[in-house]
């Protein structure tokens, strides 16, 4: 068996097993991987899969949970609030810690960083963004599709509607408890170490800038083996420094 190929694992959230993919060895540095939120998760799936295969081949164990209501999770997204996601991330980290005997490091992509409120030796982030920007993208996509259908609407009207009840944004049916909390969610700050990485051309502060396209913005899922290799190299160096 190719050690870089993923295995199906799971973690328990509210006594229900939720899917988690595991890559690489169970000894050595262990990494909990938090995916981007909503459409960005699909757009980055290939990029992250490639990255984790490279890390696995390099001896870093990687664990990638699907949040309740996302990916292969059996839960309905409309029944999920932000707290559920935070609890799920904590449960996934516990599950990795129990299985490997050590708490994992955390690598969060994009909006996944909003959920990295857990205790870890160190945290790594790629192009994180505030919750209101995550919601803004969803609202903007909804505005664009409304306009295409000839319906006049505004961001303010859509946000007000989201606060009152379930709403369909960019193909995702969200409960008010999720969209409202995302709008308010800031990036967690830590007493522990944090490394932030962004793409070249991004004006925001970061510890390093990697060359590559922002695949999370692509309407059609794209791929970039070079960016995956650059991300894997950055995470690997960082994870080894912390594991040592």
């Amino acid at each position: 068996m190719n050690p870089a190929e993923p295995r199906f694992a799971s973690y328990a959230w509210r006594d229900t097993p939720q899917p988690m993919l595991a890559y690489g060895p169970a000894d050595g540095p262990q990494l909990l991987v938090l995916q981007p939120l909503f459409a960005e998760m699909n757009r980055c799936r290939r990029l992250i899969g490639r990255t984790l295969r490279l890390l696995a081949a390099d001896g870093v164990g990687c664990w990638m949970p699907d949040l309740p209501g996302c990916g292969e999770s059996p839960a309905a997204l409309a029944s999920i609030d932000f707290r559920d996601w935070q609890d799920a991330v904590a449960a996934a980290a516990e599950s990795v810690a129990r299985g490997c005997g050590r708490r994992p490091l955390v690598a969060a992509f994009r909006g996944g960083a909003l959920l990295d409120g857990i205790e870890a030796a160190a945290h790594w982030r790629l192009s994180p963004l505030a919750g209101r920007m995550v919601l803004r993208d969803l609202v903007r996509a909804r505005l664009a599709s409304d306009r295409e259908e000839g319906t006049a609407s505004t961001s303010a009207a859509i946000e007000a509607q989201a606060a009152e009840g379930e709403i369909l944004l960019a193909g995702y049916r969200l409960a008010p408890g999720l969209s409202g909390a995302i709008a308010k969610a800031g990036l967690p700050s830590y007493a522990e170490a944090l490394r932030t990485v962004r793409l070249e051309g991004d004006a925001a502060p970061a510890d390093a800038y990697l060359p590559g396209p922002p695949l999370w913005r692509r309407a059609e899922p794209g791929d970039s083996p070079a960016l995956a290799a650059a991300i894997a190299a950055d995470i690997s160096g960082w994870a080894r420094a912390w594991a040592a």
Binding site: A39, R136, A144, S145
Partner: peptide, 28 residues
């Protein structure tokens, strides 16, 4: 064909990020 309504949203947000600007609804 690549520029559908979903892509418009991504395009505007990425322009905001890289140019350091804010694009209002009524400008679109």
């Amino acid at each position: 064909p690549e520029l559908d309504s979903m892509a418009v949203a991504g395009l505007l947000t990425e322009l905001e990020d890289r140019l350091g600007i804010v694009i209002e609804d009524d400008e679109v």
